[in-house]
Structures are given as C-alpha cells and as structure tokens.
Design a protein around this nucleic acid. Structure first.
Length: 415
RNA sequence: CGGGGAGUAGCGCAGUCUGGUAGCGCACCGCGUUUGGGACGCGGGGGUCGCAGGUUCAAAUCCUGUCUCCCCGACCA
C-alpha cells in the first residue's frame, strides 16, 4: 500500500470530545473514524486489523469443528416474544423498526433466538448432533451511554458461536474445548498472559457463566484475580462462599480493572424448550437440545490491543494483528527512491505486507508516522543506508536499527 | 435517567460579558527552497457561527424554544 495513494492521513490532534486512549490512537493514525457517539467507521487500516483478528478466531473456531454462517440483522418479533425478550422492559437496548405493512422487526442485538429457531429446520435426530455454528456479526445495541472509545459502542462486531449438544456431558466436553480454543485465540493475538478465565453471574441453569477478562486500566469491569492460579471472580458475584467454592483464597485475591474480551455460558435446555428445538433420541423420544453460547468481541479486541500495545509515539501492533508487517520509507535522493521502488515491488511480490511511504515528506514526518501507524518492522532506504551496504531495518519495539544487505532482505522478512 | 460541560472552516480554538466587515493555529491548494526524527518563505481557497423563532437599523453575540455531543454516576458483550 502506497501512502501517497491512501485517502486517510495521520493527524496531530483528535476531536476534543474523544477521551479514550484507544480511540485517540486509532483516530490519529487513521484506523477508524467516529461517525457518532458509540459508532465508528472502520477505515482501510482498521479493517485490516479487524480481518486479522477475525481470521485468527475463524481458524480456532474451525479447529473445534465450528461451521461458519451469517445470520440476518433484521429479526422477527414473534421469536423474541417466545422467550419474553421482545419487551423493552425485558431488554432495554433494542433498536426496532417497522415493515411497510406495519409489522415490527428488531435490529439484531443478539442472535440466540433466531439461530436456534433456524436450526430447527435442520436438527431432528440424535444423528444430527452435536453441531457447532458461529458467525461474525454486527450487533446493534441502543446503549444508554457509549464510552471508552471502541470498547463500548452501539454498533460492534462480535463472533458468536452456539453449541448444540445431546447431553449435559457432551455439552460440557465441548465447553472445555471452547475454553482452550479461546486461550489459543488470545495467545495468538498476544494478550493471553493478561487475559484471565473469570467466573461471572450465571443463569437459571448454571451457577456461573465464564468471561475472559483482560487486564486494562481503562476497562469497565472489576474482578478479583488470583494471578498464580490464573482464575478470577467478577466483582458482581464475589463473596466468601463463591471464593471458597472455587478453591480460591479470598485473602490472596487482587482487585483489578479489566476489559471483557470473551464470554461463554450454558443455556442448558431452557432456550431449546422455549423455542421448540428438539431431537429424537435412539428410542424415538423427543429431547430438548443442550445449548451453549460463546462470544468474542472483535472490535473491542482491536481497542484492547491498541491500548495495551502502544507507547508515547503511537501504536505497537503485535505481528499477528498488524495491518501490515513492514513500513517502508524512501528518504530523499534519486538512488534511494529507485531502490525503494524496486524493494516495494520485490517484497509485495514475495507476499510481504508492506506500507510504502513514497510521499517524499520530510524525514521526521515519515518517521513519526511510521511510529504512529505501528507496523512491527520499519525499513528505511536512503543514500546513507545504500552506502552502508543495504537497507536499514528497525523493529517498532526496539530503539536500534541495523543495516541488512540488499540480497538477504526478502529472506529475512519472509522468515 | 441524575449531575456537570460544550456546539464558530476537516481538526483544535478565540470572538459572546459590552450587538456593528467572522478570526488564529494545524490540515488543504500554488510557487520556490528544503529532506536521518513531526521543515521554511511568499501567495491562496474554504463558514447557512447546531437548528427554529423572536427583539433590533443591525445578531456568532441579546431573548425563547429545540436538537446534538462529551465527561462523571447508575447500567451494560
């Protein structure tokens, strides 16, 4: 990608009303644009980060037999009435609208009801189960107050997975696989060492639901953490009894601020019973399906990562989610320009993701922008580097640069 | 929804008290000089002053209404 052709640009200032660190960084660097309170546009760079995160999640969900699909955003009122979640008194974040014929439709804030109902068309026998489906979807929620940049918005992308199992045991086995898959996702993204399995309020069916909470000063949740055991208890359910029931020593728990990046829970058979999702067992008897739900906040993850990996100069993306791996700068000088052009073609052809700063701005401006955009590796081509025998390479996380020979650059970057 | 703050160029702001040609910085355009850490000179373009109504010879400024945004709280993937 040539910066000279990019329609986005970096800025010094950000809107005064934007307070959160993640949104300030992402807006300054041109990753997102604020459309209105709690609603952000994903600009090309931001979209690439989102796609990187989605791909990691997709691979791990596929690895535990998830089947990807995409539900609709317009939803039927009748479905939500069956589970008593249509009324604004029950769910206060609904956006609703009407069809031309006057009938009401809901704008998707969740997809549990529709996905369960849809699956009724395909699930009829124990032979059809278990099934694991998931999607990446835009959720629309009429939040009372959006805040914390892209951490709490009215429109956001979420991965939601649903497990349909025949028995409680079968459900539990998958639940454990999902927990492992979640840790793999967070590990690949680079935040697993700061992300903790957390016990939170359950429902009618189970005592607890489980959250994946990432240590973050600007997070919105509070948990009590045992960093050795890597377990936490959400403040909303914290008590002596809960701590001891989980074999955690209350005295050793540390109260910390976190951001919720994942949430999984067990519906038991209640949702299936309400919506009539049943299967015939071996004896021909109708049985309700055991349902589990597994969410990951995709856009929120981008905000968490942006905030966690940044310094006073800008973003410092982990390789796995960086929009581009290399930031190539051509400094002034006809030979440097020529070499940089050739290098850009060479790397792009080799499949290396490159941001190429071919704008010819002042060196300081280009260096500052490279730091702000946060690609893991910076390459500089200048008369000076060429005279020294090649290109200058510097990692975003490091202070020092070194010269690599022209011949070996592609091999070094491909790894 | 309670408390607080703010709407003037893409962004950041001054001007409002005391009505009288709508300004500054960044960004943008042109020319030239620059180019290893956010360069400089000269010249330029860009505004229904959130919206509606009222007072007045005259409203960004005064009055009334209204909309929106932000922060704190409660709530929440």
């Amino acid at each position: 990608m040539r910066l000279s052709q990019s329609f986005t640009r970096t800025t010094h200032g950000v809107p005064a009303d934007e307070q959160s660190r993640n949104a300030k960084l992402l807006i300054k660097a041109g990753y997102i644009h604020k459309e209105m309170a709690g609603v952000y546009v994903l600009l090309p760079l931001g979209l690439r980060v989102i796609e990187k995160i989605k791909q990691i999640v997709r691979e791990e969900m596929n690895a535990i037999d998830g089947q990807e699909l995409q539900m609709s955003s317009l939803q039927r009122k009748e479905l939500w009435q069956k589970t008593d979640r249509w009324d604004d008194k029950e769910v206060d974040i609904w956006f609703k609208s009407k069809l031309r014929n006057g009938s009401e439709v809901g704008l998707a804030w969740s997809h549990e009801e529709p996905i369960v109902d849809m699956l009724k068309n395909f699930i009829s026998s124990y032979r059809d189960l278990p099934v694991y489906v998931y999607q990446f979807q835009t959720k629309l929620r009429n939040e009372i107050r959006a805040k914390s940049g892209i951490l709490r918005t009215r429109e956001f992308i979420m991965k939601d997975m649903y497990s349909l199992s025949r028995t409680a045991d079968e459900h539990e086995a998958f639940y454990q696989r999902a927990i492992e898959a979640y840790h793999k996702v967070f590990k690949r993204i680079g935040i697993d060492d700061k992300t903790f399995f957390t016990f939170a309020s359950g429902g009618a069916f189970t005592q607890f639901s489980h959250e994946f909470q990432t240590l973050l000063a600007s997070g919105e949740d509070t948990v009590y953490l045992d960093e050795i055991k890597k377990r936490a208890i959400n403040a909303e359910v914290m008590s002596d009894e809960v701590a001891s029931s989980l074999s955690l020593d209350k005295a050793k728990l540390e109260k910390v601020t976190v951001a919720e990046v994942g949430n999984i829970f067990n519906f038991g058979t209640t949702k299936a019973e309400q919506l009539g999702l049943q299967f015939s067992d071996k004896a021909g008897q109708k049985q309700p399906v055991f349902l589990g739900s597994y969410g990951i906040g995709i856009t929120r993850l981008m905000g968490v990562v942006a905030e966690l990996f940044a310094d006073d100069k800008g973003l410092v993306w982990p390789e796995a989610v960086a929009p581009y791996q290399v930031h190539l700068i051509a400094l002034s000088g006809s030979q440097a320009k020529k070499s940089a052009e050739a290098l850009y073609d060479q790397l792009t052809t080799a499949g290396v993701e490159v941001i190429y700063d071919d704008r010819g701005d002042s060196a300081g401006k280009m260096f500052a922008d490279a730091d702000l955009l946060g690609a893991p590796i910076r390459l500089v081509v200048s008369e000076k580097s060429l005279a020294a025998g090649g290109y200058e390479i510097k990692h975003r996380k490091q202070e020092t640069a070194k010269i690599v020979p022209v011949d070996s650059i592609v091999d070094i970057l491909r790894r």
